[in-house]
């Protein structure tokens, strides 16, 4: 469980990135923090592993204030997935995945062997193990990023715009695989995105943020779609747009779902 308790972040130049934000992220759940740039979502995420320190308020993990933990140890105990993978360009794929175990003192050989297993787990050919990140496609880099975050078997995964740098087709595929993986590993995941579709695709719970990390609405994707709290959320999730307003039309005795522009998107199962 991760708990944000009235965290506040003000920079020396007076800009307030996060204003008294509180949230509880239950264990084994996926929570999406979604908002446009300036919403403070990334700042919130980085407070969890102390890459950003709040000006006031506390972040705690399972009841322990993160400030009481050693910064470096804390970071090694939390998986972090960055946009475009955030791989170290001078290390091979296997060494990238083995980063944290090696830092923790595991033998390089053992860590590399474990890394191969992780690569398979995220759907990568182990033949890629000795390549360098620049030799991989964007989607492959992103998978390596996920494998690296899982290498030390952390309880918590933080993901910063995890699939934002890849093209839409690969993104859909990665999101589907991520859901399957999570069903299997059940980590506590916090991720930030500006893409509401990604938030709905991955999040058990979605937190829509305004400027300064003010919570506009939180809830399951379905709840937010069904009942946007206000115009801001409604605009943000695109409620009322053709893509979100689906209707049923009977065709040959079956119920076909069509969008606001009357374009069919699927068939209703009974």
């Amino acid at each position: 469980m991760i708990e944000f308790d009235a965290v506040h972040k003000e920079y020396p130049d007076g800009t307030v990135a996060v204003e008294r934000f509180s949230l509880i992220v239950p264990s084994h759940r996926v929570v999406a923090l979604v908002g446009s740039s300036g919403s403070g979502k990334t700042t919130l995420l980085r407070m969890v592993n102390r890459m950003v320190e709040p000006s006031s308020g506390t972040v705690s993990i399972d009841g322990v204030d993160v400030r009481s933990m050693d910064r470096v140890k804390l970071r090694r105990s939390i998986g972090y997935v960055l946009q475009a993978g955030g791989l170290l360009p001078h290390r091979t794929v296997a060494d990238n995945v083995a980063t944290v175990p090696v830092l923790e003192g595991r033998s390089r050989r053992q860590a590399r062997a474990d890394a191969l297993g992780l690569l398979e787990r995220v759907g990568l050919d182990t033949a890629l193990a000795d390549r360098y990140p620049a030799q991989l496609s964007g989607g492959q880099q992103q998978r390596v990023g996920v494998a690296r975050a899982l290498a030390a078997d952390p309880n918590i995964l933080l993901m910063d715009e995890p699939f934002g740098a890849v093209d839409p087709i690969v993104r859909d595929q990665l999101q589907a695989e991520m859901r399957a993986l999570q069903a299997d590993i059940g980590k506590t995941i916090v991720f930030v995105t500006h893409d509401i579709d990604e938030a709905f695709a991955l999040g058990d719970e979605v937190v829509v943020l305004r400027t300064g990390a003010e919570i506009a609405q939180r809830g399951a994707p379905a709840e937010i779609l069904a009942n946007p709290a206000d115009d801001f959320v409604s605009d943000f999730v695109g409620a009322g747009t053709a893509q979100r307003t689906l209707r049923i039309r009977e065709v040959d005795g079956r119920s076909v779902v069509v969008d606001g522009d009357d374009r069919p998107t699927g068939v209703l199962e009974r």
Partner: peptide, 9 residues
């Protein structure tokens, strides 16, 4: 404006 300001602790 924002990117340059945020330094990693």
């Amino acid at each position: 404006h924002s990117g340059a300001r945020e330094r990693i602790a």
